[in-house]
């Protein structure tokens, strides 16, 4: 995936559409947008950084997992088998991108009112007391669709494609715009690239 920071307007569309797609509870954000105001008045600027699981080639979360619940799937996607995860949270500590979340309880969005029928239905698909993360919407990808955060990005800041194919749009964008990985010093070779904002 390539994220163009020049196009990102920080609308949180990716975050919201991801929540709708996966029905995640409060405290679990597969896709999120970090924002910072840098500088001092009047010379300030707002910067946005959409983050998600980087689906690293050399994923430390897969290495540390004692059960093999964190694993590589087809096309280099890193996923978690919710029925094998033991909830040790070692993968959370190993991930340099803080992209994993521990789902410790079935908490609803409307405190004190219990779960809504929608929440009950969506939470039934998930396991409690295990770690959760973005899987690039693998069910959608298998159907030939793009991940929810990509199709719902109003600014078209996200591009999804095959990094292995040098003629793909993502490969071309990375080459032409100087795409960079987040924290390359971690040595994990992430599959998410960022195009510079300027």
């Amino acid at each position: 995936m390539v994220i163009d920071l020049k196009r990102c307007v920080g609308c949180y569309g990716c975050q919201t559409s991801c929540k709708a797609e996966h029905g995640t509870p409060p405290g679990v954000l597969f896709a999120r947008v970090l924002k910072r105001e840098l500088g001092t008045f009047p010379n300030t600027r707002m910067v946005f950084l959409p983050v998600l699981c980087s689906h690293c080639d050399d994923a430390p979360c897969v290495d540390v997992c004692p059960t093999g619940a964190s694993h590589y799937r087809e096309a280099g996607i890193v996923d978690i088998d919710k029925d094998t995860c033991v909830g040790c949270r070692a993968c959370m500590q190993a991930c340099p991108y803080a992209a994993r979340y521990y789902n410790d309880e079935q908490r609803g969005y409307y405190g004190g009112q219990g779960l809504t029928p929608y929440e009950e239905a969506r939470y039934a698909e998930q396991n409690c007391d295990v770690v959760m993360k973005c899987n690039f919407c693998i069910d959608r990808v298998n159907e030939g669709l793009e991940p929810a955060c990509v199709v719902n990005c109003a600014a078209r800041a996200r591009t999804f494609g095959d990094l292995e194919d040098p003629t793909s749009v993502v490969s071309r964008l990375i080459r032409q715009r100087g795409g960079q990985q987040l924290q390359p010093e971690a040595g994990t070779n992430p599959s998410v690239y960022y195009l510079p904002p300027e």
Partner: peptide, 18 residues
């Protein structure tokens, strides 16, 4: 552990120190 009943699955010795 979040799921202690699955403790017996922790045998992935090749890379996991746990």
């Amino acid at each position: 552990l979040g799921r202690p009943s699955r403790f017996w699955m922790m045998f992935r010795l090749r890379t996991s120190w746990i």
